[in-house]
């Protein structure tokens, strides 16, 4: 390898990193728009236009950015940046539609789980550093909630990895997201195991609103009780960064669910169908069109998961008290997750 080819590969990676970050932010804001529109329609309102989140972010970036006098300035300004970077990095490790992850081989599911925890920590740290009592209460709630949903999240990840270890054998890394997404788990588990995986999917869907601080688990930024909680002192650019970070986190979580449980591609099926039609249809080279079909299918899956995991739940349920929310994750959801693990293990031995 000479210097030029190394430099070329390096440059290409930098270009891809910017491209994926840009796509992540764009998709995040777009799906936030869908989420707001859909939940407005469910409440029989007209709702904002789809591009409303872009307008909100643009407005926030032009507003004055205030740092409170008693705040610790570098933590206060640094927290939103870290909260945005962590989900963007997580996006580099996740397969997006038909494309394999950019940083394939450098990290796996466990790293993604750690990266998912960082925005919550950044929110809590930012809240504590802002010196407002409301923000302190919100940050405490955020930390309590994070400690509650980490266990069910870990259970779901471990169940999938354990089963994957059985499927691919000991030579391959069962935590690798590329391995998980190329071996759809449903075909290998049987009936009892399938029930277990369904319970695990439910667990992960229950973690989704908590991870995003969306409505039944929005205690950390409860508007009506603690004045937007951790974000109470955030203005302008910093608030805009948190806003974007939350939407990117939504894309990362939905992509993670797709990777773990629904990694199917439409183009394979379509190709097989065209071949089955035989003489009626001319056999065409799918090529670029296959990629396009898969990307559209991936966007559709994202929409479905965000609809069922975020919008529907957000409209249907009111906010829990923080102790009830913590109990909800520690007891019922953890038990459901462990039952799912048990079923998968039993299904494998029977």
């Amino acid at each position: 390898m000479n210097i030029e080819s190394i430099l070329e590969g390096w440059l290409l990676n930098v270009v891809f990193i910017f491209l994926i970050s840009f796509i992540g932010i764009f998709l995040g804001l777009l799906y936030k728009g869908f989420d707001r529109k859909i939940s407005a329609m469910m409440q029989s309102r007209i709702g904002p236009p789809i591009i409303q989140p872009f307008r909100d972010v643009r407005k926030l970036l032009t507003k004055e950015t205030i740092v409170p006098e008693n705040a610790i300035e570098w933590i206060f300004n640094g927290a939103p940046i870290i909260a945005l970077i962590a989900p963007l990095v997580a996006l580099m490790y996740l397969p997006i539609g038909p494309f394999s992850p950019l940083l394939e081989g450098y990290g796996d599911l466990i790293l993604v789980l750690y990266l998912l925890a960082i925005p919550a920590i950044a929110m809590a740290v930012g809240g504590f550093s802002s010196s407002s009592p409301y923000a302190t209460v919100g940050a405490q709630r955020e930390v309590v909630l994070m400690m509650s949903y980490e266990l069910p999240l870990a259970i779901s990840a471990i169940t999938v990895a354990w089963k994957m270890n059985e499927i691919v054998g000991p030579e391959t890394n069962p935590f690798s997201l590329q391995v998980i997404s190329s071996n759809p788990i449903w075909g290998h588990v049987g009936l009892i195991g399938g029930l277990g995986i369904a319970l695990i999917v439910f667990t992960l869907f229950a973690v989704l609103p908590g991870e995003l601080s969306k409505e039944p688990f929005g205690q950390a930024k409860a508007k009506t009780e603690i004045a937007d909680g951790v974000f109470v002192e955030y203005t302008g650019r910093n608030l805009g960064l948190f806003y974007i970070a939350n939407t990117v986190q939504m894309i990362v979580l939905a992509s993670l669910i797709i990777t773990l449980f629904f990694p199917y591609q439409l183009s394979n099926l379509l190709e097989r169908w065209i071949i089955l039609q035989g003489p009626i249809l001319p056999i065409v080279e799918m090529g670029v069109w296959a990629l396009l079909v898969d990307v559209v299918f991936y966007l559709f899956k994202l929409l479905l998961i965000i609809y069922f995991g975020v919008s529907l739940v957000r409209v249907a349920f009111a906010r829990f008290q923080i102790d009830k929310a913590s109990y909800f994750y520690w007891v019922p959801i953890s038990i459901i997750g462990l039952l799912g693990l048990l079923f998968v293990v039993v299904g494998a031995t029977v």
Partner: peptide, 21 residues
């Protein structure tokens, strides 16, 4: 509320003056 729904103009009620326009 659904009858007037100012969110269709992008107007949102926020919980703190720091976020307000």
């Amino acid at each position: 509320t659904p009858r007037y729904d100012v969110e269709r103009f992008g107007i949102e009620l926020v919980g703190t003056p720091r976020h307000a326009d």
